[in-house]
Design a protein around this nucleic acid. Structure first.
Length: 277
DNA sequence: AAGGTCCTCAACCGCGTCTCT
DNA sequence: AAGAGACGCGGTTGAGGACCT
């Protein structure tokens, strides 16, 4: 059977939408709703196919869409969800209110895929824009923190212990794993979801070198330490304890992130109720 | 300063699925 | 049950702009 074209192609406009078209579409939908996409453009007086109208509305004009850069928490959540769901962009989008599947797909291909692949390949050039995303790849030298308390266990369960592209490697996106914001955000999905504690997810219990944490915590008056020294200490600490290989994103060595990481480690102590040093 | 390269993201395309008849 | 129409989804494209040399 030959599929009928989605719309009458002849005479219909393609390409970028004009503000006038946006206005027409928005006004029409606000007044009449969007029941029948195929009929909508004709009724609204648009020379577009229904598919194009639907896409424009769902991906751009919808009032509940949140525009602008993704937050770190959103990106971390996408990575976690992608690991679980694969390229099910609409399913992932359903966990990120106000974000569209198209937008998520784009951000995945442009930023997050690299992070998720742990930066196996070195960046060929300097980053174009400063990014606040940080991800490291670590070889496990594990101290598994397991707990029978779901409330704490699930806080770490979204951290993968390995990925298809690099079996045996731990992707430890620490910032996404321990910050309060992420815990709250992730609550809608993995962190409070029983599913996150099934047998497969049980393998995802965070694995990291406790001594790294201890070393970080042993630094006194961290705020007084010069930025350069922080960076060196932090990086060296990670290198020492995670088997000597560190792959980082464009901005890993940015000062504010270095600082952030230490605080993240410190937060993790509270979360896991680790013994005082 | 200019040309080339790369990145971003809105939009398109085609296929799968759902719904209606 | 089967065909047709409509919708939704994921992959891909390409224009515009940022960045590099």
């Amino acid at each position: 059977m030959v599929r009928a074209p989605c719309c009458e192609k002849v005479g219909l406009k393609k390409g970028p939408w004009t503000t006038e078209e946006d206005h027409i579409l928005t006004s029409y939908i606000q007044t009449h709703g969007y029941g029948n996409w195929r009929a909508l453009p004709k009724r609204a007086g648009l020379l577009r196919c229904g598919k194009s109208c639907r896409l424009r509305w769902t991906n751009y004009l919808r009032p509940d869409i949140k525009r602008g850069n993704f937050t770190k928490e959103e990106e971390d959540l996408i990575i976690n969800l992608h690991e679980k769901l694969g390229n099910k962009w609409s399913a992932i989008a359903s966990n990120l209110p106000s974000r569209t599947d198209n937008e998520i797909k784009n951000v995945w291909h442009t930023h997050l895929k690299k992070r998720a692949n742990h930066y196996i390949e070195e960046p060929k050039r300097k980053p174009r824009r400063p990014k606040s995303k940080t991800s490291i790849r670590v070889e496990p030298k594990p101290v598994t923190i397991a707990t029978s308390d779901p409330s704490t266990a699930t806080q770490t369960s979204s951290i993968p212990s390995s990925t298809p592209t690099s079996p045996g490697w731990s992707h430890c996106d620490i910032s996404s794993s321990f910050t309060n914001e992420t815990r709250n955000m992730g609550a809608s999905y993995a962190f409070t979801n029983n599913e996150s504690m099934d047998s497969s997810s049980a393998q995802d219990l965070v694995e990291f070198d406790e001594s790294l944490l201890n070393e970080a915590l042993s630094m006194e008056n961290w705020d007084d330490v010069p930025m350069d020294a922080k960076a060196t200490a932090q990086e060296q600490s990670v290198l020492n304890h995670f088997g000597g290989e560190l792959l980082c994103s464009d901005s890993f060595c940015e000062d504010e992130n270095i600082d952030f990481w230490l605080r993240t480690f410190m937060e993790s102590v509270e979360l896991h109720d680790l013994p005082e040093l």
